[in-house]
Nucleic acid binder design. Structure first.
Lengths: 235, 235
DNA sequence: CAACAGTCGAGAGCATTGCTCTTGACAAGA
DNA sequence: TCTTGTCAAGAGCAATGCTCTCGACTGTTG
């Protein structure tokens, strides 16, 4: 939070550099052997250090994992935001498709990192609160696109069925957090779209559609385009 | 496959019984410490055996995991099928909701088993083909409901946008497997619904909607009911 | 310039893991 | 009765995460 007031000493700089190198080595390990196969000793070996030295930088294996999780959320969020920024502002379906395609591309390039953040959580592990801001970047981006689309007069098909009171309450709270005026029904649709996005990519990565969908890219595009329509992004 | 032709000797019966006990103990372990924390030694300890004895029954830890995965798929499929069988045949939205609620209930009662089959796959592990039949039970059930609904004249809203050729090809192949006549667009919607079902439950279990949805049961019901409508189950 | 406090990497060590191999006891079939 | 195959047990191997201690070094203070 508060910036390091003192000028960063050589020691501190070396420490940060080494922390980064450790994370890089760990990420390489992760990509090859998965989260379960991440070994502090192997990381230390790759860096020519002794295993105990790692503990000077990360007090436990889980802390290293947490750092990697935050980095992954941030990298994914950045990828999505950059792709979205490249689309014409008024082209709401295009912005949505840019986000989902960037997410899928990122996932295909780093399946283990994707599994790290969207796969099964490790049982004893409680995600620290530092992770929620990076994790919220994509859903917020989706909400922003929806909000600007409705502001531009692109309204989704009107909600057909009544929304139970607890759901309405949750969506109202969500609407107050993001401040933009979206109806509760539209907010619920957006959350569903986000779930669908993550679910579709995970299904491809985890092989749940093996033998059903052979050519995944057009399938993904087709489904996501339909979801974009359901979101009311297209007039 | 082929039934054991010879009369089951006492030895063979004892062996099967012990295999079952090992799986039960492993399932208890799994529920407590998750898939990563499943230890053959701990299972053996709980059963008063020595660790090496387990290898007489399961040649490796992965084989034990595979057995557990198949059992979990089967248990989940059975739960969904039984719940669906309890609904009125002509009440297609009711049958859909019975399936999704049974799946969610099952998942909430056995989160670790859910994570085992729908969470991140272990990197080196390739699911053997024995798992695909049990895994297909719920999606086939969903397809059957959709098919019977259209046969009863409940047609989903007509597809608006063109389907790319590779997607159409995949869906056509899927339609030939399940033999019932469903349009390619309807098949795609059903696969999407299945993805959405698994994704929604996983999101709840893995905490991705923590702080957004406080009361998950009505939220889940609301979203699933909407998906049921999109599937055209209601006239 | 000298003393001190804090940080660093190295190494030994502990409890644990999956898995292999050998050994001796036991039961089923010839 | 004897042979053959199965069983649990135990020792052992190469790993793992993590802790502790011990010198060496660095940056700051007196």
């Amino acid at each position: 939070m508060a910036p390091q007031s003192a000028p960063r000493t050589a020691r501190a700089r070396a420490r940060d550099e080494l922390s980064r190198e450790i994370k890089d080595a760990a990420r390489r390990q992760l990509a090859e052997h998965g989260a379960a196969g991440l070994s502090l000793r192997a990381v230390a070996r790759e860096m020519g250090m002794v295993s105990s030295a790692i503990y000077r930088y990360f007090p436990s294996r889980d802390d290293l994992l947490t750092a990697l999780i935050i980095d992954s959320y941030d990298a994914l969020g950045t990828a999505a935001e950059q792709a979205e920024a490249g689309a014409r502002r008024g082209d709401f379906p295009g912005r949505w498709m840019a986000v989902v395609r960037a997410a899928r591309r990122w996932a295909l390039a780093r399946p283990q990192e994707w599994a790290l953040i969207f796969g099964s959580p490790v049982p004893g592990y409680q995600a620290p609160s530092d992770t929620v801001d990076p994790a919220a970047r994509i859903p917020l981006l989706v909400l922003r696109i929806c909000s600007q689309a409705t502001a531009a007069g692109h309204s989704p098909p009107p909600g057909r069925r009544p929304m139970p009171r607890p759901v309405r309450s949750d969506m109202k709270a969500l609407g107050q957090i993001v401040a933009w005026q979206l109806s509760e029904a539209d907010l619920a649709r957006a959350v569903l779209a986000w779930t669908e996005l993550i679910g579709s990519i995970s299904f491809e990565l985890f092989g749940h559609l093996h033998g059903v969908v052979r050519d995944y890219e057009p399938y993904f595009d087709y489904q996501m385009r339909g979801i974009g329509e359901d979101l009311g992004l297209v007039p």
